[in-house]
Every structure is written in C-alpha cells, then in structure tokens.
Computed example of a mutant assay.
Amino acid sequence: MSTVSTTPERPSTDARRASSQSPAPAVPASFAGVYRRIARRETHSPRSLLAIVLAVLLIVSLAWVGTEIVIALLGAPALLVAPRDMFASLANIADAPSGIVATAGVLAAIVGVLLVVAAVSPGRRARHRLASNRTVVVADNEVIASALARHASIAGNVDPDNASVSVSHRQAVVHLTPTSGIPVDRGVVAEVVSAQLDSYELRPTVSPRVRIADDGRIGA
C-alpha cells in the first residue's frame, strides 16, 4: 500500500526570493479616485479658522454699531463714536485729503484681494504624500525633516545635534554646524539629501538646500 503525503512542499529559495522581489500590485482604477480624495483631505486643510475669525470680527462690529445706536437713542454719551458723527464722516469722506482717501482705498483693495485669494486657494497642512502603488501614504514634514537630518549628519560627519532640517511645501533646508577643524563637503551632503528625497518620491516634489555654518563648534 502506497502512502501519499498531504504536506505541501516548501518553495525553493529562488522562488521565495523572486516572490519577495515581485512588484506590488497597482491600485485598481476603481480606487484611484477614492485614494486621490483621501490624499487631498490629509494634505489640505479647510479655511474654517479664517471664516470663524472674520465672522467674529463682523459680529463684534455690528454689535458695537448697534450698541452705539441704542446709547444715542437713550441720550447717553457714546462709547467710542456717536452714530451721527460716524455717518457724517462717511458722507464727507470725499472732502478729505486725497492722500488719505487713496491710502485707505489701496489698503481696502489689498485686504479684499487677500481675502479672495484665501477663499479660493486651498489651505495646506505640513504634510507630503509619498509614492505608493498599494495605498495612500502621508508623512508629516517633521518626520521627513528628521530622516533627512540623520542622513545629512552622517554625510557631513557632524554630530546629530548639529544638524537640523526644515521642510516646507517645496523646499528642504539643511543647516549643519561643523566640528571645529573638520570641514564639511557641501556637495556630498547635497547629493545625499537629494538622493533621499528622490527615494521618498514626495508629492509635491521638494528641492534641497544645504547651509553650512561659518563657525564650527568645539567638542561637537
């Protein structure tokens, strides 16, 4: 009588290695739109704070004007400006010096343009999206800066405490303070940082900038 083993055979080492090196499956087309919305939600912020501040200022202004009108009707002295004087000043604004009127108009136009730009443009969080074929990967700028600082300190042969990185929306600025008597090769540090940023495949892309302090630190 022959016996058949039901234990599956283990894959060979080459087969396991090939399986581990196989590319990750791409995101299905049906999920691409969902992932884009998730990435945008995680990397952009609403303008809620600006809207709340403007609403509070408008409410306070209207409350003040209403209070001044009630006080004027009661015959009491005004808190700041009487409504009659306020409206008279607005009516006679054309008689004011042209320089004051032009300056006020320019300031009002600038404030209006800034508010329109803030309302139309999306707010951004201090985060970047990393390239991935399987899911949405978002990293805080502080995490990216910490990783870049570690590689920059190694490439520049400086103490980790003497390396700092600030990551903004489009740029990563590396600050290095060398040890006294040990020069730092800016080109090598810039090359290492650039290679790291390329490997992260950040979206939007970030360009590196390396700054070396003129004065070294003793015992660093």
Results as ranks from 00 to 15, higher is better:
Met1Cys: 07
Ser2Trp: 06
Thr3Glu: 06
Thr6Gln: 09
Thr6Trp: 03
Thr13Tyr: 11
Arg16Ala: 15
Arg17Ile: 11
Arg17Trp: 12
Gln21Pro: 00
Pro23His: 00
Pro25Asn: 07
Pro25Ser: 05
Pro25Phe: 05
Pro28His: 00
Ala29Gln: 10
Ala29Met: 09
Ser30Met: 11
Gly33Ala: 11
Val34Met: 08
Arg37Met: 10
Arg37Thr: 11
Arg37Ile: 09
Ile38Cys: 01
Ala39Arg: 09
Arg41His: 10
Arg41Lys: 13
Arg41Trp: 13
Ser45His: 06
Pro46Ala: 00
Arg47Met: 15
Leu50Ile: 14
Ala51Leu: 14
Ala51Gly: 08
Val56Glu: 12
Leu58Gln: 05
Ile59Ala: 15
Ile59Gly: 12
Leu62Ile: 13
Leu62Gly: 14
Trp64His: 09
Trp64Asp: 03
Glu68Phe: 06
Val70Thr: 05
Gly75Gln: 01
Pro83Phe: 02
Pro83Arg: 00
Arg84Ile: 12
Asp85Asn: 15
Leu90Tyr: 07
Ile93Trp: 15
Asp95Leu: 12
Ala96Asn: 01
Ala102Leu: 12
Val106Thr: 13
Ala108Trp: 03
Ile110Trp: 11
Gly112Val: 00
Leu114Gly: 06
Leu114Trp: 08
Leu115Cys: 14
Leu115Arg: 07
Val116Ser: 02
Val116Thr: 05
Val117Lys: 11
Ala119Pro: 03
Pro122Leu: 15
Gly123Val: 05
Arg125Met: 08
Arg127Val: 14
Leu130Gln: 09
Ala131Val: 07
Thr135Asp: 08
Val137Thr: 04
Val138Pro: 03
Ala139Met: 10
Asn141His: 07
Glu142Trp: 02
Ser146Trp: 07
Ala147Thr: 10
Arg150Asn: 07
Arg150Tyr: 05
His151Tyr: 15
Val158His: 03
Asp159Thr: 04
Asp159Pro: 01
Ser166Arg: 05
Val167Arg: 01
Ser168Ala: 02
His169Ala: 00
Ala172Thr: 04
Ala172Gly: 02
Val173Ile: 08
Leu176Asp: 03
Leu176Lys: 01
Ile182Glu: 08
Pro183Trp: 04
Pro183Val: 00
Pro183Gln: 04
Pro183Gly: 02
Val184Leu: 06
Val184His: 02
Val184Tyr: 03
Asp185Lys: 13
Gly187Arg: 07
Val189Cys: 01
Glu191Phe: 09
Val192His: 04
Val192Glu: 08
Val193Leu: 05
Ser194Val: 12
Ser194Arg: 13
Ser194Met: 13
Ala195Asp: 11
Gln196Ile: 10
Gln196Gly: 09
Asp198Leu: 03
Leu202Pro: 00
Arg203Gln: 14
Pro204Glu: 10
Ser207Arg: 09
Val210His: 07
Asp215Asn: 12
Gly219Leu: 08
